[in-house]
Structures are given as structure tokens and as C-alpha cells.
Design a protein around this nucleic acid. Structure first.
Lengths: 203, 203
DNA sequence: ATATTGGGTTCTGTTTTCATAATTTATAGA
DNA sequence: TCTATAAATTATGAAAACAGAACCCAATAT
């Protein structure tokens, strides 16, 4: 039994571009030219157009009709907005998730937390951090909510990697452990309030 | 000075399909065939694909690679999720909007409210209602937040028109006036709490 | 009757080609 | 020298053409 051979070319392009944008290999406001990208992926420009369209829908690119697509810019207002939205959505997701959480969900979260602590560069820490935040929420089983949150997390990550690029200090994230403990006790109130404080610290 | 001749064919298709989905002219799970739609718009199927892609991103369609796109289905879980997200996001937007609200914003909202009261069928009431809910929030000036909310409102509208299709009774919406009064007094707390109750009543 | 195979049809995803809008470069004028 | 216009180049958006996967339906086997 094979796993999803149904991945379209435009999916692959979208994934690759997403990562390049997150990691800052593509800079804010950088132009995304269709046939240039097409060449690097050995395709025609149509699948590229479709990938760009979806990047735009996810807030990672900005398009002006007939004038091309650019990597989405980043100003302080955007950071503020993203934080506000995460603060609005993630606590809700967490509250719905906790009662439905399975042992499997919990162990995934713990694993991600370990990966956070073990990370020794910003890129891999960020990946693990994002996995942690997703792992504690997936159980809510609300697809729109989860994908909205995922997009916001990606945009946060982009900001993080863009501004703190080189600086890296090992960190043990007390909030994460506190959240995990509360979840284990099924103590939604403290889990949610710690998560809120945690997100408030974002900048 | 012309207004936006930069509308692409795929934009027009997207708009038309959006309305057809909202109004229930396209039913949940109905198949959206590319060349069929292309024929009705006298285009090739490429712009149609792009329109479908964006409908998918907005939660109005569901696509399975190589197996086509369908109008997004609607089960009680979805309704619940949409309500939860609106409850999470709209109060936040309102709180940020009120301090920035201009007289123009306010009069737009009043106009929409009047249109609600004057409506004598469900379709036009729904349009006015949506305009009201947007008008009281635009001032927050948070584009991602606003477009997320707009999409949720569209999905609510779809549910509304889908289930209560024919029934129509004139209604004067007390919540709307209460919200407007609170906004006029710059009383964010009551405005937000009335909005929350108002959204809670959604089903 | 039910399940299964095969062939034909339909539909999606992609490439190739093209028209036209936008941008850049060059040229002429003040 | 700077501005404004025109020509050449480049890029986007759409059409046409095509390959291959999914679907349908009839004929065959169980």
C-alpha cells in the first residue's frame, strides 16, 4: 500500500517555496517570476502560477494582477496582527483539544518538546517549536481552525528566522513543560492561561 | 480615470462561483468540472482551475488531486467550528476597530442596518447582515483578520441560506442597534459582549 | 446475482504556444 | 541635463493541445 503518490507538481513547488520563504532564502518583497521558478523546477510556468496562487492565499505572497507576485512584506503591524490572531485562536483550539487528547497526541507533543530542548540551531528549534504547538492542538479536530493556526505559525516563524537569524542560545522552554503538565492533568484553565502568556511574549 | 480594469478572468469566475455556492445554486458535494465551467464562461479550463484553487483556499470547495473538486460539504461539526472561530475572531477585531472607527465607518454600518430592517427576503437580508458585520470591523485595519472573518461569514451565510431557504419573517435586529449604540459611545466592553451573545445565537 | 476484467470515455494536470500588458532601453525634444 | 516619447524586451494571463489517471459500462468469470 503506497502513500499518496497523488502529489501534484504545483504542490511540490508550493512546499519548496514555502520553506524558502520561511527560512529567508527568499526575502520580503522579492519578485517571484513564473518562468524563472519554472526553470529551476524543470516545469512549465502553469504549475508555478498555481503554487503562487496558493502562497498568496496563505499570506506568504502578494500578487498584483498583471504585475506579478512578490514575497509578502513584513512590517510591525503585520507582526502585531499575527500575534493578535494567534492569541485569539490558539487558546480556543487548545480548550477544545484537551478533552479529546489521545496518548498518541501527548507523546507527539513530548517528542517535539524534547526536540526543542535538543536543538542547537535556530532553524531546527523553530521546526520543533512549530511541531509542539501543532501537536497540542490537533486533537480539537477542527480543520479550518488548525490550518488557520498553522499559517499564522508559519508567518511567526518567518519573522523569527528573519530577525534573529544568527543568534542562538540554548533554551529550555518552561512554558512548554508547564503546558504539557497541565494537559496531562486535564487542567484546561491553566494550560490555556500559560499558552496565552507564552504567546503574549511573542514579538 | 478607470476603475480596476485589472480584473482577471479567474477572478470573475471565482466571484460568480462564490455567489452560486452561497446561494445554494451549487449544492454541497456537487462536482465542479473544469471544462463544464469553462464552457459556461467561454474560456479555457486554466482560469477555471485557478478559480477553483482559490475557492478551496477559502473553504468553499474541496479538492482531491486528480479526482476533481467539489463544493465543500456541510455537517454539524463544520457549523460548530465556524461559530467557534467567529466567536474567537470577531470580538478581537471589534475591540481593535472601535477606537479607530471613523464617522464614515459608522454611517456605513447604520446604512447596512437599515438595509437589514428593510429587507423583505432572506437573500437580501443576508447580504445586508454581512455588510453590517464587516462595516463595524473594517476600522481595525488588520487585513488577514478581516479576510479570515469574511470567509467565515460567507460560510455562515451559506449555511443560513441553505437551511432556512424559504422561510422569511421580517425582523428588527435588536443586537445590531445595541452594538451600534455601544460603538457610538465608544463603549467597547458592551459592544463586544453584545456581539458575543449575538454570535452565540448562531446555529 | 455478484465480482472482475477490459476497453472506451471523460477529466485532470501539464506543456506548448500565443496575445497583450508592463517594463526597460533607446531616442528625440526642451 | 532632464523629460517625454517610441521601440524593444520581458512577463503575465489565457488558449490550445496533449498525456495519463480516473471513471463508466459492458462482457465475462465465479
Amino acid at each position: 500500500m503506497k502513500t499518496e503518490p497523488n502529489i501534484t507538481i504545483s504542490d511540490q513547488i508550493q512546499l519548496a517555496l514555502t520553506n524558502q520563504i520561511i527560512r529567508g532564502q527568499l526575502l520580503p518583497d522579492e519578485k517571484l517570476r513564473q518562468d524563472h521558478i519554472a526553470k529551476t523546477f524543470n516545469t512549465s510556468h502553469v504549475p508555478v502560477r498555481e503554487a503562487l496562487l496558493r502562497l498568496e492565499a496563505r499570506g506568504l505572497a502578494v500578487s498584483i494582477p498583471r504585475r506579478g507576485v512578490r514575497v509578502a512584506p513584513f512590517n510591525p503591524d503585520d507582526i502585531f496582527e499575527i500575534k493578535a490572531m494567534r492569541l485569539a485562536l490558539e487558546p480556543v483550539a487548545l480548550r477544545y483539544a484537551i478533552p479529546k487528547m489521545t496518548p498518541d497526541n501527548l507523546s507527539m507533543a513530548k517528542e517535539a518538546q524534547r526536540a526543542c530542548d535538543d536543538a542547537n540551531d535556530l532553524v531546527s528549534w523553530e521546526q520543533a517549536n512549530r511541531q509542539f504547538h501543532s501537536a497540542i492542538l490537533v486533537a480539537c479536530a477542527m480543520p479550518r481552525l488548525l490550518s488557520a493556526i498553522e499559517n499564522l505559525q508559519i508567518q511567526s516563524a518567518r519573522h523569527l528566522l528573519g530577525t534573529w537569524r544568527s543568534t542562538w542560545e540554548e533554551r529550555t522552554d518552561r512554558d512548554h513543560t508547564a503546558i504539557l503538565n497541565a494537559i496531562t492533568r486535564k487542567d484546561s484553565d491553566t494550560a490555556v492561561s500559560v499558552l496565552k502568556k507564552h504567546l503574549q511574549r511573542l514579538r
